[in-house]
Computed example of a mutant assay.
Amino acid sequence: MSDKPHSRRKQPGGRPTPPFRRSPRPDPSERIFLYGLHTVEAAFGNPDRKRHRLYATQNALHRLEERGIAPDVPVETATPRSLQAMVGKDAVHQGAVLEVSPLPALGAQDLRRATLVLALDQVTDPHNVGAILRSAVALGADAVVTTERHAPEEGAVLAKSASGALDMVRHVRVKNMARFLEEMGEAGFQRIALDSEGDAPLDEMEFAAKVVLVLGSEGKGVRQGVRAVCDRLARLDMPGRIRSLNVSNAAVLSLYIVKRGQAGS
């Protein structure tokens, strides 16, 4: 699809289709502390990540150097105790803390060339979302979309749980998931929501070249208003005695099924 500005196409009835809505820009003065060697390494490898200062022990600096990381920001030598004071005593910082700005805000307009997008409808646990980000990178998804409310904010816990994946895949935060899915449908994406009452197993479906896969929170699942915008409802049929998976495991399996289906079509 062209990267030219989104045109005002006509909806049924002659009304113009609204242009893509842009997400609010992050506060340029806001700072986040990322920690852990994998997380810090990925942040240095992300050209979209604005970095400010690295706090690290001598051992961590050596380990980063072994990974080919040459810090492009001021480096302050720190002790493990001083790093704990910055990020909390329970944080597994591995001797490295990087001060950064939040990533640039993204929206549907940034996903025109995507082929597989994973949307999480009010999944709140940062550990689950972090694990899903890792799976999205491993399985070749182009972006992970979360809601601005009832979802974890970009920060140290999410970044650490993602073990670097936050800086490897596009993370889009939207105010209104249903509206986002409407925009993606207008851009030619097939929208599939996972639901236990889905009309067909996901692995028996045919997939378009461009798919948005929608997963909901544990317990509530995908909300009714979000399901209503989707083209299909699909289910994951489990062969064993436990009939359902938690959201992070469901994300792995469903991404694999869709990716395999797209490759074979």
Rank of each mutant, 00 (worst) to 15 (best):
A228M: 12
Y256P: 00
A78D: 10
N46P: 01
D90G: 06
L245S: 06
G140F: 06
Y35E: 07
P26K: 07
E182K: 13
V157H: 11
K160Q: 12
M205P: 02
D231C: 10
A143H: 06
G221M: 03
G130A: 10
A96Y: 04
R112A: 13
I32Q: 07
G45E: 05
L120M: 05
R227K: 15
K210M: 00
E76S: 08
A209K: 09
P201W: 02
V123L: 07
A78W: 00
M238Q: 15
H150M: 04
P104G: 04
K160M: 07
V145H: 08
Q122E: 15
L103Q: 08
I242C: 02
S163W: 00
A56Q: 10
L111K: 02
V145P: 07
E30Q: 15
A193T: 06
M1G: 10
A105P: 06
A60E: 11
F20A: 15
F180P: 10
K160C: 00
P71N: 03
R22A: 14
S217F: 00
A162D: 01
V97L: 04
L245E: 03
P19D: 08
V258K: 08
A114V: 02
G198N: 07
V226A: 06
Y55C: 09
L253P: 00
L139Q: 13
S135G: 13
L194N: 05
A193Q: 03
E197V: 00
G240V: 03
E204M: 06
T57V: 10
A91G: 07
D199H: 13
G198L: 00
D121L: 04
T124R: 14
T17Y: 01
E65C: 03
G88R: 04
F44W: 01
N59Y: 04
P16R: 09
D195Y: 05
M238C: 13
D90C: 01
E182C: 10
V75C: 07
Y256R: 14
L158R: 05
A228G: 11
L83Q: 11
R112T: 13
V92A: 12
V174I: 14
V137M: 10
L236P: 12
V87F: 11
G216C: 07
L133Y: 09
L111V: 06
L54E: 05
M86T: 09
E218N: 05
R170V: 01
F180W: 14
L215A: 08
A159E: 04
R51I: 07
E76A: 08
Q11P: 00
F20R: 11
P16K: 04
K220S: 12
R31H: 08
R21A: 14
K89M: 06
A200C: 07
G95F: 11
G107M: 01
E76M: 01
R134N: 12
S265R: 15
